[in-house]
Design a protein around this nucleic acid. Structure first.
Ligand code: FES
Ligand code: FES
Lengths: 143, 143
DNA sequence: TCTTAAATATGATTTTTGTCATATATTTTT
DNA sequence: AAAAATATATGACAAAAATCATATTTAAGA
């Protein structure tokens, strides 16, 4: 469902949401270790996210990655779309060209409602929402 | 969510459910074309399914693949597990080692219900069920 | 202005997944 | 018993995803 890369990206963005701010930027090295992802790999993903304005960055000494308030209002879906593209999540379960109600594949009726549920939730839940849930101790980020 | 391979496998098994029987075996060549999958590739998948008794086969002249009634009672999930393994579907959305209610990752509460729904449906829906839905014109198999 | 610390761009390498090819074993037919 | 038609086993090859490496650009600070 989610690629390895987008899982990593979500973890990194959440980490930034919890630990960074415009005044407190975080170097890639300091992100990679706590979220347990190879540094060179997460660096590339962060660059993709930065290019698409999901996160913010500044280079040079005292530089690093951080989230503005605006960044924090991005949905989780946005992260996934930047990293994986938008085809994966919406594609038919059996790879029919067009997935719709009038020409459903045998799995469509069984699975499409749940799939749409997930999509809707990913679209409406923001970085800020999830960061709050961690802050309140309702969920946990991996070491 | 589903690998390409398991999509192919489901299509092939459904095709067999609709067109084969113990008295009417179907050669791999005759399966590959209508479901639009390379012959050598679907052959390998069918062998995996046969080895795990999801489908039946007989070699030699007049041989081929077919489904017994018992085969038709297999769940869709069984097909997926044989082809993809059981880790993919059950894994945590953020790849935490253990995915459970007491130590949820930030996506768990949001997505786990829908995910379990899907799992449950895949587990209970049988080959026979889906074949019937196609037979009744409620869903369609790709050319 | 020079040095240094950081992100960025680019691409090489490795691993996994998907695809193709071929030699072998089994069953039926003659 | 021999020949033919089929699945089976095995592995080679290709494409995609994940991982690693390095040279370049930018900003801060001395
Ligand atoms: S047509 Fe296959 S999931 Fe919609
Ligand atoms: S802990 Fe991540 S989905 Fe359950």
């Amino acid at each position: 469902m989610l690629s390895n890369s987008s899982k990593y990206a979500i973890k990194a963005v959440l980490f930034l949401a919890l630990n960074s701010s415009e005044e407190n930027k975080i170097r890639v090295k300091e992100i990679a270790e706590p979220i347990n992802v190879p540094q060179a790999y997460i660096a590339k993903l962060l660059q993709d996210l930065s290019r698409e304005n999901i996160i913010s960055s500044l280079r040079g000494p005292k530089g690093g990655f951080y989230l503005t308030n605006e960044n924090k209002n991005n949905s989780i879906l946005n992260i996934i779309v930047v990293i994986d593209g938008d085809k994966k999540l919406k594609a038919c379960m059996l790879s029919l060209d067009k997935c719709n109600e009038t020409n459903p594949c045998p799995l469509h009726d069984m699975l499409n409602n749940s799939r749409d549920e997930i999509l809707k939730k990913l679209k409406h839940k923001t970085i800020k929402d999830l960061a709050l849930s961690v802050k309140l101790g309702k969920s946990f980020l991996p070491l």
